[in-house]
Design a protein around this nucleic acid. Structure first.
Lengths: 225, 225
DNA sequence: CCCCGGCCTCAAGAACGCGTAAAAGCCGGA
DNA sequence: TCCGGCTTTTACGCGTTCTTGAGGCCGGGG
């Protein structure tokens, strides 16, 4: 299910959006200020964010920057300001679209569909990553090894998923910890050692000499095909 | 260079866009009707399309469909119709954005940047820096020399990364020390000597006569391609 | 000619990060 | 309540990396 984070300080707008979005099968999260919006975004990993710019605590542009710091989630800005400088500012800060209030619900929903479609298209590319030893199916969240399915715990899968989405790339310890354990645990690199040992035991032919789950000492980990 | 296909049957709009886009460094292609637009798109493979919906020959939505049949190029629709049903129709046909005429050039350019930014982020082909002796891949954080991968320690990589991002430019000792060792060690120029010796041993064909990792005595270091 | 600053080289101990194992804590379901 | 699976914590040995100091080289200036 596609999840949407709605951020606005006007309850009636949040309510209207929640009703319309839920009715169309979206999962809806909400936030009423910038600070909690960033928190909810980290926790809930929404597929798209609808963001009002006139928030009470943080400037809208800073909220965009805060999201863009770690994510490429599409952001659709809602704002009462119609002047082009506001639009330019928001779009250049990293927003994907800009809709002025009052807005037509039909149009907003269409723009939302367009935004989601783009990211789906981006990630749709063969959601299966294959190595000589095992196969990762990102769509159904399963791993096979020698024809047999390998059971992974949620944490293990979290790591495998991030790595498999970045084949060949070095992924920093910080990024892994951030995305799997949350921003509070970015220094617990011991977790990574424990879990990578576990994953190697489950997936590598020779866990002591891994061919695919590679450690880059001091930097991070790499998923070699 | 980013290329833009502008499709509109009103010459003055095409001209205005051509001038503004060229001035900002875009490569501009043009078409005045739907049929030729599809042809030019196939030939020129633009990075983004600005499409007027009121074309003389083909209905705008069909042009979108014609493009979407084989491509995911971002499409920004221009249209005089402000009713939401028109917007919904175009967006659901596959358009990425919808701007109503008359439009502000600033805003259109910002939306165009947003559209391009998305696809660049998506396709970001590895930024690779290549010399006669070795290859630095900044995205995956790897260095190759003569087909074989060279292992770099975190500190070594830190130096190579900074230099490779500034090819040909002189980078001061202070900057290198600051970025790799932190502000506390900007005077430890001995570190640089030790590590550059190490890097030259790993990367240069003749470490005693470096061709790429050049010392500028008293100033800093330079990465020659 | 000699001195000196800056650079290169080498080597050794300290510090760090990794892998591994095993115990302890924390649920949720039977 | 007990059990089993999963996560978090602790401990230790080991190899690698970083830091540091000493010595040699080179070129420019006195």
């Amino acid at each position: 299910m596609t999840s949407v984070l709605v951020v606005d300080d006007e309850p009636q707008i949040v309510r209207a959006l929640r009703i319309n979005l839920s009715a169309r099968g979206y999962e809806v999260m909400t936030a009423y200020d910038g600070r909690s919006a960033l928190g909810v975004a980290v926790e809930g990993k929404p597929d798209v964010v609808v963001l009002d710019l006139g928030l009470p605590d943080i400037d809208g542009v800073d909220v965009i920057a805060g999201l863009r710091g770690w994510s490429t989630i599409p952001i659709i800005v809602l704002s009462a300001r119609t002047d082009s400088s506001a639009k330019v500012e928001a779009l250049d800060a990293g927003a994907d679209d800009y809709v002025t209030k009052p807005f037509g619900m039909d149009e907003l929903l269409a723009r939302l569909r367009a935004a989601v479609r783009r990211t789906v298209a981006r990630e749709a590319g063969d959601p299966v990553v294959e190595t000589a030893s095992f196969v990762v199916d990102l769509a159904v969240k399963k791993v096979q090894r020698g024809g047999r399915e390998v059971h992974l715990t949620p944490t293990e899968w979290g790591l495998v998923e991030i790595l498999a989405r970045n084949p060949g790339r070095l992924v920093s310890q910080k990024q892994l910890l951030q995305e799997v354990w949350g921003p509070m645990h970015v220094n617990e690199s011991q977790y990574l050692r424990v879990y990578f040992a576990q994953l190697r035991r489950k997936l590598e032919d020779d866990p002591a000499r891994p061919k695919h789950l590679i450690t880059e000492p001091g930097m991070g980990y790499r998923f070699e095909l």
